[in-house]
Design a protein around this nucleic acid. Sequence first.
DNA 1: ACCCCTAATAATGTATCCAATCATGTGAAT
DNA 2: ATTCACATGATTGGATACATTATTAGGGGT
Lengths: 257, 257
Amino acid sequence: MTETDSPLPSPPDVTSADAAATSIREMILEGHFMPGDRLHQDHLAETLGVSRTPLRTALARLAQDGLIDYEPNRGYRIRRFLVSDIREAFTVRANLEGLACRLAAEAGMSTGDLDRLQALVAEGDAILFKGALPIDQLPAYRRMNVEFHETIIAAAGNRWIGRFVHQSHNVPLVSDRVILWDDFGVIHRSHDDHRRIAGALADRDGVRAQNLMNEHVTYAGQLLADRLEADPSATLRHAFHDKKADDRTRPSTGDPR
Amino acid sequence: MTETDSPLPSPPDVTSADAAATSIREMILEGHFMPGDRLHQDHLAETLGVSRTPLRTALARLAQDGLIDYEPNRGYRIRRFLVSDIREAFTVRANLEGLACRLAAEAGMSTGDLDRLQALVAEGDAILFKGALPIDQLPAYRRMNVEFHETIIAAAGNRWIGRFVHQSHNVPLVSDRVILWDDFGVIHRSHDDHRRIAGALADRDGVRAQNLMNEHVTYAGQLLADRLEADPSATLRHAFHDKKADDRTRPSTGDPR
DNA sequence: ACCCCTAATAATGTATCCAATCATGTGAAT
DNA sequence: ATTCACATGATTGGATACATTATTAGGGGT
């Protein structure tokens, strides 16, 4: 079986349209725009220092990603996300990642991948050892979390799952890079899910791994959505969200993985 | 609850880039290109009667859809689909459509939608009444099938499911418009699935509807993939696939080039 | 004969220009 | 006063021209 060296690779921005796309994407996730805002092509092109042609392809890509809306002859607008969008995205993500677990378990993961999962669990253990998640350890924890999920998805051997999960990440806050860090109980339980999932995968117990992952993602989504509805600003304060990971490049659009 | 008048609407080709995209998409699904073929921009633009600018946006869209591959400075190529791609797409489709059933059942479908499903089942009954699927009834049967699935997906109230299922349809032959019509036993059973699914949805039995739909789609995919592996040409002959209307002539096996 | 380097060629990426469409604002008629 | 019509300005869509990158053909050297 083939080893998954880098779970979800993303190519560098070789063309200027790519660069524009990533720039705009980061701008949006950074909250630089308000929902409903129009994206002036002339203005944006001048800001990014490119012509309108590559800009337009970049906008088209973002629209396909679902990050912005497009209407012919009316241009592009920042999409307005509702809490229901977040719930729905998490529902699908939970199902797909659960499916990934079952497929990976049934296929039998390589010892390399299994070791990797165990190492990631150990990483989490080390971080959470003191019964808390120190704020300065958040990046490390987040990276561990991302890699855990991506490893399983890659091991599932079904390109569509990775593709769709990736797309669902384009909804703000719906990402395994987002971590609500103010409730240690939740985090501890979440990490325990990881441990059990890794164990189920090692045992090739597909159904158990699937159920665990489904609940794992579903609960995270429910928690986030409930909090958003209760108090959006407080939730955003406690959600650790970096638009540009320290080491990881941003998954670009249009790449066959 | 709101009525779903047109389950999954697809906007008309208002811009010429849209027209180019649909044209090329149909060309590809029609088998007009061979896997790995390069898509010359100048040539295609002239063929379609448009400039390279809208053509390029169309190609970018198709690449995002996964129908063609793209490499910077090297252009677009027809993607090479393997039987495994078809299997994988069906796996995900089965899971997502099963999820759609569960969600629709739990939310409770409107009486309008339920009536519609019943009407569609009755349509199928009428077509299959004589214990066979007459070749001239294929278009009607196919339309019924498409509408059945789309109605449920729309009723699930989760835009991501529809979106992803739609994308998975971009794999050649992975579409509810494709029907293997030479085995009446399979068709009869498939239609019986529809009946039971409609019943489960009416009973708000989410799990049952989910399981039925999952198996319904999974089996279709397995049958198709197994046949393709056994004898591709024979399978294609028995797979009824129309890209748009019922006015197709022949998909010219010996394509010009 | 083979390989590598170089130059010509072709195809893609980008910029600019023109056309078509939509939004806005003014004015007259009811 | 309100509404409809029309004209004007702004913005997007499409076509063309230019720049840059890959591919390929050819020649010289080993």
